[in-house]
């Protein structure tokens, strides 16, 4: 609760070990609050959460030792060197002095900052500071990473490199919860996603399954030679076809049931005498799904 407002309401999530879990929502939806609660930075006014069996309120110290939290905006000590900074956070995580040097070197290599170990943090670019933030999160080898908008403000190359690092971390067995506004990247990166709005959960599950939330059946794009209106009328007359619309000479078709496939479209058009040129499944992007879900089309 913030003042009289509930930041989160009835949010029930399970993240499996080894998941790369995307956390999606509009500004103010409650993503950061959720991550802050999981990072033990905020105490929930009611409800709770467990991370690897540790309760975030009663066993907060144990939780902090297994998580790595990277806020959306984090302060850095600009007058510190890169290795000093990581050495300091390694000490905060109680890594013995004899093991800190290796831990710091390993994470610097992992995030591609090996050549910057002696540089002052203030002299690093935004992308490098973001990598340093990721190195900080990894320095104590946590099992769970909580990353709040880690790609914000990064250029395309830095974003792609960051996503590659995250995929590598998933391969290493880390569980990662990542919130981001760049949904196209989450779509390819994550195996599971959750969409929240106004503190409540709208969807939680595999990325592929999210499309089922917005459309009753599969969608297709078709091109025909000849009069396109005839093709539209043919499809509209078929009860197995849900929605048909024409956009710039392309037919956009949504079937009435998830059990049907593209052969329905082909069969209807060919039998009706239309000359079908191409037919391809039109997979909904995560961005489109998100827009539909959070604009009330399915609520």
């Amino acid at each position: 609760m913030f003042g009289g407002n509930a930041a989160l309401q009835g949010l029930n999530l399970t993240v499996n070990q080894g998941d790369l879990f995307g956390f999606i929502g509009s500004n103010g939806a409650g993503k950061t609050t959720t991550l802050r609660i999981l990072a033990t930075f905020l105490s929930p006014s009611s409800g709770g959460a467990k991370i690897f069996g540790h309760d975030i309120v009663d066993d907060a110290d144990a939780v902090r030792s297994v998580i790595g939290y990277m806020p959306d905006f984090f302060g850095v000590y600009k007058d510190m060197e890169v290795t000093e900074y990581l050495d300091f956070f390694a000490a905060c995580h109680r890594i013995p002095g004899s093991q800190r040097d290796k831990a710091v070197s390993d994470v610097l290599e992992l995030v591609g900052l090996g050549e910057k170990r002696g540089a002052l943090i203030g002299a690093l670019s935004r992308g490098m500071q973001q990598r340093l933030g990721l190195a900080r999160v990894l320095v104590h080898d946590p099992q769970l990473l909580l990353l709040d908008e880690p790609a914000s403000g990064l250029d395309p190359r830095a974003r792609i490199e960051l996503m590659a690092i995250l995929q590598e971390l998933q391969r290493m067995g880390k569980t990662i919860i990542i919130s981001s506004h760049i949904l196209s990247e989450l779509q390819t990166l994550c195996n599971r996603v959750a969409i929240i709005e106004k503190g409540g959960l709208i969807y939680c599950g595999p990325v592929q399954g999210v499309q089922d939330q917005t459309a009753p059946g599969k969608s297709f794009r078709a091109r025909v030679n000849g009069d396109i209106q005839i093709a539209v009328e043919l499809l509209q007359a078929d009860p197995r076809v849900g929605v048909v619309r024409e956009e710039n000479g392309v037919l956009k078709i949504t079937l009435a049931s998830p059990d049907l496939d593209g052969s329905v479209v082909a069969e209807t058009l060919v039998r009706g005498g239309a000359r079908l040129v191409s037919l391809e499944e039109d997979a909904l992007g995560l961005e489109e799904v998100f827009m539909r879900l959070t604009r009330g089309e399915t609520q």
Binding site: T40, D61, Y69, F74, G75, C92, H140
Partner: peptide
Amino acid sequence: EDHHSGALELLLSTPLT
């Protein structure tokens, strides 16, 4: 300074009490 810059948030997410 740490509170203002946000660095305190990072410190508090570690086991440092």
